[in-house]
């Protein structure tokens, strides 16, 4: 009973938050709603007794959305509405609605035909974190390692991109030096 109430409450909240994310013209509203929605999703993990995943959801997405905030801060005036160019709203709504409907159908069809079974159901003998670890290091070892290598590549690429002119300080230069370095670049 309590779980059903909690589920519907958080389902409503999550959908409402992501609706705001999509519909709002204000970047700050959109990002805040995104962050809130991501944290509300973690409630479903807690309801399903997957504490570890719920906490990881909070940690990972609060950090990830924080990065989105950083971009929003740099590119937009977040306190003002963004002027969107929408030549025809009908096509946009139709296409996005159809894609969403398709996704729902794809996810829903196996559930309707009752073929979905948990391959690794939560057992209460071992904790959450251990269960995730066992799955990660047995069946999904290769995708896990590949993902790790991809992240490493991305990290190295990011460091190289950022570190090209890392030792030069713009703030400590006098104006003439800045001019000179600009000319050198050309």
């Amino acid at each position: 009973m309590v779980e059903a109430i909690a589920f519907y409450l958080f389902a409503f909240l999550t959908v409402a938050m992501f609706t705001i994310t999509v519909m709002s013209k204000n970047a700050l509203y959109a990002m805040s709603a995104l962050a809130a929605g991501m944290i509300f999703i973690s409630a479903f993990f807690f309801l399903l007794d997957a504490d570890f995943l719920g906490v990881v959801q909070i940690i990972v997405y609060s950090g990830a959305v924080m990065a989105v905030y950083a971009f929003g801060m740099m590119f937009l005036d977040t306190t003002k509405d963004v002027k969107e160019k929408n030549p025809s709203k009908k096509i946009v709504f139709f296409l996005s609605g159809m894609v969403a409907l398709l996704l729902v159908l794809i996810v829903l069809s196996p559930i309707v035909s009752d073929k979905v079974q948990a391959l690794y159901p939560i057992s209460h003998d071992i904790g959450n974190a251990e269960a995730v670890g066992i799955v990660l290091f047995t069946k999904y070892l290769v995708p896990f390692e590949v993902a790790a290598i991809m992240l490493l590549v991305a990290m190295i690429a990011g460091i190289i991109l950022a570190s090209k002119r890392m030792d030069e300080s713009i703030t400590l230069k006098i104006d003439q030096e800045i001019e000179r370095s600009k000319k050198e670049q050309q």
């Binding site: 700050l28 906490v55 990881v56 909070i58 609060s62 924080m66 306190t79 959450n128 974190a129």
Partner: peptide, 28 residues
């Protein structure tokens, strides 16, 4: 008493930094 208490505390404390972030961005 959740069995990932440490992660929970750290994660929620980290999410608390949304307060300063939102405050700063909303203040104009």
């Amino acid at each position: 008493d959740i069995n990932v208490g440490l992660l929970f505390v750290l994660g929620v404390m980290g999410a608390g930094l949304y307060g300063p972030l939102l405050a700063g961005m909303a203040s104009q």
